[in-house]
Simulated scan of single mutants.
Amino acid sequence: MSLALLCGRKRCTGPGMAAASQRVLVFPSSSELGPALARFIAVRAQESCGSERARFTLGLSGGSLVSMLSRDLPAVPGLDCRKWLLGFCDERLVPFQDPESSYGLYKTSLLPKISVRESQVLAINPSLPVEEAAEDYATKLREAFPGEEIPVFDLLLLGMGPDGHTCSLFPEHPLLEESEKLVAGLKDSPKPPPQRVTLTVPVLNAARCVAFVTTGGSKAAVLKRVLEGKEAPALPAARVLPSPGELLWFLDESAAGSLTLSVERPTCAAAL
Rank of each mutant, 00 (worst) to 15 (best):
M1K: 08
L3G: 10
G8W: 01
R9T: 13
R9K: 07
K10Q: 13
P15Q: 05
G16R: 02
A20W: 07
S21L: 00
R23A: 15
L25S: 11
L25E: 03
L25Y: 03
V26F: 02
V26R: 04
S29I: 04
S29F: 00
S31N: 13
E32S: 15
L33Q: 03
G34Y: 03
G34S: 13
P35V: 04
P35I: 00
F40I: 00
A42Q: 09
V43C: 04
V43F: 04
R44T: 05
R44W: 02
A45G: 15
Q46M: 13
G50F: 01
G50Y: 01
S51Q: 07
E52H: 00
R53E: 08
L58G: 02
S61V: 03
G62V: 09
G63D: 11
L69W: 02
S70P: 09
D72A: 09
L73Y: 04
P74T: 01
V76Q: 02
G78Y: 05
L79C: 01
D80L: 05
D80W: 00
D80S: 11
C81V: 04
W84K: 01
F88T: 07
E91M: 01
V94S: 13
F96E: 15
F96G: 14
Q97N: 12
D98S: 15
S101M: 08
S101R: 00
S101T: 14
Y103G: 10
L111R: 01
L111Y: 14
L111E: 09
P112Y: 11
S115L: 05
E118P: 05
E118R: 12
E118Q: 12
Q120I: 10
Q120Y: 09
V121M: 02
L128A: 03
P129I: 08
E131D: 15
T139N: 13
K140I: 05
L141A: 07
L141K: 10
L141V: 08
L141T: 01
R142D: 01
E143L: 13
F145V: 06
P151Q: 12
G159V: 03
M160G: 13
G164M: 02
G164K: 03
H165N: 14
T166M: 02
C167D: 06
P171F: 06
P171D: 11
P171Q: 10
E172N: 14
L176D: 11
E178W: 07
S179A: 14
E180R: 15
E180P: 10
K181W: 00
L182P: 03
A184D: 08
L186E: 10
D188F: 00
S189I: 05
P190A: 12
P192F: 13
P192W: 10
R196C: 11
L199D: 07
V201M: 14
A206P: 10
A207P: 09
R208P: 02
R208L: 09
A211F: 09
F212I: 00
T214Q: 12
T214G: 10
T215R: 00
G217S: 13
S218M: 07
K219I: 11
A221E: 15
L223P: 08
K224L: 09
R225Q: 15
L227G: 04
G229V: 09
K230L: 13
A232L: 12
A232R: 15
P233Y: 04
P233D: 08
P236Q: 07
P236K: 10
P244T: 10
P244E: 07
L247Y: 05
L247G: 10
F250W: 07
D252I: 07
E253R: 11
A256G: 06
G257P: 04
G257L: 13
L259I: 03
S262Q: 15
S262V: 00
T267D: 15
A271E: 12
L272W: 04
